[in-house]
Nucleic acid binder design. Structure first.
Length: 485
DNA sequence: GCATGATCATGC
DNA sequence: GCATGATCATGC
């Protein structure tokens, strides 16, 4: 098609959006078909060449989902994908993103993946400022085209486009993203590009982006090669964008900070919690009018949300950033009472996984934690000590946890050994706490009869990965463990 | 006192 | 009914 006859004004974002919205309800197959019809009406195109295009697309279709975006670019907007740092519609300053969403079992909708914006060029990015960065050049105005991911469809060309909308991050989010950007840049300047992790930051993450697991890049301040990474809006952030900007609906979350205070969210949160340092759980309950006679198990977590000004237990910033609040109790003898549990795994699923893309590995890679620490005083009362944001250090995850995970997989694959003592208590050969500094596997179920199926058909009590209490203790800052007075 | 297995309790 | 966070019970 001739450039003059484009059906939209490529210099005008609103015109591009309006044209994109005609995609709603179409599958990628429809888009290709429409293109063929258009081309065949145009006498310049031989029917043969049309089939050639179809063939090429089909051949490339297994190489990744990137080419769903390419179909929209070439066969709907009629332009070739660019490879420079300019937005796709450079004259309008609009970056095109074609991205999947999914409908969950409970009917809610979420982004299926993080939104990758642009590769991180370790050797040069540290010289950039956020406002003028290649990242922001692309991310400040995006046309988001969402299609519904559906596991049951064999061909991804049958996926249906449901939403098309321009999106710019709101001001308060940009402040958080600037800080995220600074955190990532600082790590590169510190010669730690190889230790970057998505859990380091809140909305904007440094996500792995390698064609193979061995792929490595140079970094400017250290000889250790680093995994290639890209700037990406986290999955949690994109789920929020989907449900609050793309699909019209009501925002049900409460904010922690006002727009003016957004830049260093973490500092704000830890300072606010620190104000209540030294108060007992009972005192805090009284202060926030919580029922401390009945004291539900979750009382400490409720206290944290009240301190942050949240009435319920859903803070918007934490939902967007995938921050998980964990309360920790330290005993008089300076030990953490309990190990930290995580969601159960299914025996038949874990044996199909690879560590690099495993559920538990990804969970730890992508989650940022807020530890809120209480310590027992001489009277046995729990006293608030403060809080700390944390995500698992790269080496602990990729070495220690990896070992535990791989042993778990192999034990389950090669038939789990179950020995029963005379009391009917069962012991297995899954990785124990004593075997690893960081992590272990233990039952986590309603009771012994609460089971999942093993690959060999036996039913066995649900298990999960735990982080060792001794390890968590080691990770806490001194000010949270010991009274400085 | 700690490691390991087992289970409780709340909220959705 | 289940996931998740929290805790108990036992034996070495």
């Amino acid at each position: 098609m001739d450039k003059k006859s484009l059906k939209y004004d490529k210099t005008d974002p609103l015109s591009i959006e309006e044209y994109a919205q005609k995609l709603i309800g179409k599958t990628f197959n429809d888009v290709i078909e429409d293109y063929y019809i258009e081309e065949s009406m145009n006498s310049a195109a031989e029917p043969e060449s049309v089939y050639k295009i179809a063939n090429t697309i089909e051949k490339n279709s297994n190489k990744g989902k990137g080419n769903l975006g390419q179909i929209i670019e070439e066969h709907y907007f009629y332009y070739k994908p660019n490879i420079d740092s300019n937005p796709d519609f450079s004259e309008a300053g609009v970056e095109l993103k074609v991205t999947p969403y999914k409908i969950n079992k409970n009917g809610s909708k979420s982004a299926k993946e993080r939104l990758v914006i642009t590769m991180i060029d370790f050797m040069n990015v540290y010289k950039e400022e956020f406002d003028k960065s290649g990242l922001w050049n692309k991310a400040k105005l995006m046309l988001l085209i969402y299609y519904l991911y559906n596991q049951n469809l064999i061909s991804k060309f049958d996926y249906r486009i449901d939403y098309a909308k321009l999106f710019s991050p709101p001001k308060e989010d940009i402040e958080v993203m600037k800080h995220d950007f600074d955190v990532i840049i600082q790590k590169i300047k510190d010669g730690k590009a190889h230790e970057l992790s998505e859990g380091d930051t809140l909305y904007l993450g440094a996500c792995p982006k390698a064609s193979t697991s061995k792929d490595r890049r140079r970094q400017p301040f250290n000889y250790t090669p680093a995994k290639p990474r890209a700037f990406a809006f986290k999955n949690s952030y994109m789920t929020y964008v989907l449900n609050n900007y793309i699909i019209p609906g009501k925002n049900t979350y409460e904010n922690i900070v006002s727009k003016e205070e957004a830049y260093n969210l973490e500092e704000y949160v830890t300072n606010r919690i620190r104000r209540y340092k030294g108060k007992t759980v009972d005192e805090l309950c009284e202060l926030f009018e919580l029922d401390y006679v009945k004291k539900p198990k979750s009382i400490q977590s409720l206290i944290v949300y009240r301190i942050l000004g949240i009435k319920g237990n859903q803070a918007e910033e934490f939902v967007k950033a995938n921050v998980v609040v964990k309360t920790i109790r330290i005993t008089k003898t300076n030990k953490i009472k309990e190990n930290m549990s995580f969601p159960n795994f299914k025996f038949k699923e874990i044996i199909k996984e690879d560590w690099d893309d495993s559920e538990f590995g990804n969970y730890l890679r992508e989650t940022r934690f807020l530890f809120v620490v209480f310590k027992e005083n001489a009277n046995g009362e729990l006293v608030l000590m403060g809080s700390q944001f944390w995500n698992i250090p790269y080496d602990d995850l990729e070495n220690e946890v990896r070992l535990v995970w791989e042993k778990t997989k192999s034990v389950i694959e090669n038939e789990l050994e179950i020995k029963v003592n005379d009391k009917g208590i069962r012991f297995t050969n899954l990785p124990k706490q004593s075997e690893n500094r960081v992590s272990h596997v233990r039952p986590h179920a309603r009771n012994a009869a609460d089971t999942y199926e093993l690959p060999d058909g036996r039913l066995f009590t649900k298990q999960c990965f735990w982080l060792n209490n001794t390890y968590i203790y080691e990770q806490l800052k001194d000010e949270l463990k010991f009274d400085q007075n």
